[in-house]
Each structure stands twice: as C-alpha cells, then as structure tokens.
C-alpha cells in the first residue's frame, strides 16, 4: 500500500478511475508472492495509446483499465516477436470512459464546449 510513516494512505494517481487506488488486493499480492503472476507498470500515456490503437484497428473501445493490459501486451509482443500468441483479457468496455478519453486527447475544450 502507498502509505506514510503513520500508516495513512497516500494520494494515488491513475487516468483510470478503477486503478486510482493506493493499495492492492490480497489475491494479487498472493499471486505475486507465489510467482503465479507477474506485474508490470504502464503509464497513462502508454495506456491511452493502446486505447486509441484498439479503437482505430478493431473498432472496440476498451475500458481504460483494460487498455493497460493492451499496452502491456504490446510491450510483451515486442519482446516475444511476431510468432508469439498473446491472449489479452479485455476486462471492460470503454463507453464509460469516453469523456476521460476525449479530454485526454484534447477533443473537448476546457470550458466544456464540444
């Protein structure tokens, strides 16, 4: 958990509301500790680039949370090469995220006039 010396949670940031939380669930901690899962960080920019890519290439709007997985898959693909088969769990849809995405990509002006 992100915490200070007194055990108070520290502010977190993620462009994805579902990931903007300063702690990790016990299941994930257990999977990491037992070596059954590996975790890699993805930046807001990487996630949003993957978001844009899936929209443009497949016409599927991924949830921004899931866009992190897509960005991770791209990185993994670069390491494993073109013959690799990678399965991505697209865990959520992004129609709930269009406002965030529109703001991120500069498609709305700051006054809210579209």
């Amino acid at each position: 958990m992100l915490q200070d010396e007194f055990g108070q949670t520290l502010p977190s940031h993620s462009i994805s509301a579902g990931l903007d939380y300063p702690a990790v669930g016990p299941e994930h901690a257990h999977l990491a500790d037992t070596g059954r899962a590996a975790y890699e960080p993805i930046t807001d920019a990487e996630a949003m680039e993957a978001f844009r890519l899936l929209c443009r290439t497949e016409g599927i709007i991924p949830a921004i949370e899931s866009a992190h997985a897509l960005a991770g898959a791209r990185k993994l693909g670069e390491r494993l090469g073109p013959d690799a088969v990678i399965l991505v769990n697209l865990s959520g849809r992004g129609d709930k995220d269009v406002d965030t995405a529109a703001t991120y990509f500069g498609l709305v002006d700051p006054e809210g006039q579209r």
């Binding site: 958990m1 915490q3 010396e5 007194f6 055990g7």
Partner: peptide, 16 residues
C-alpha cells in the same frame, strides 16, 4: 476519570 479506549482501523496500528 472516564475509561478511554481507542477505536482504530488496523493499518495505523500495524504500521506503528
């Protein structure tokens, strides 16, 4: 003179 008990979530205690 009142009895004093602390009410605390666990993390600050564990951290201390």
């Amino acid at each position: 003179g009142a009895a004093a008990v602390v009410m605390s979530y666990w993390n600050p205690i564990e951290r201390y």
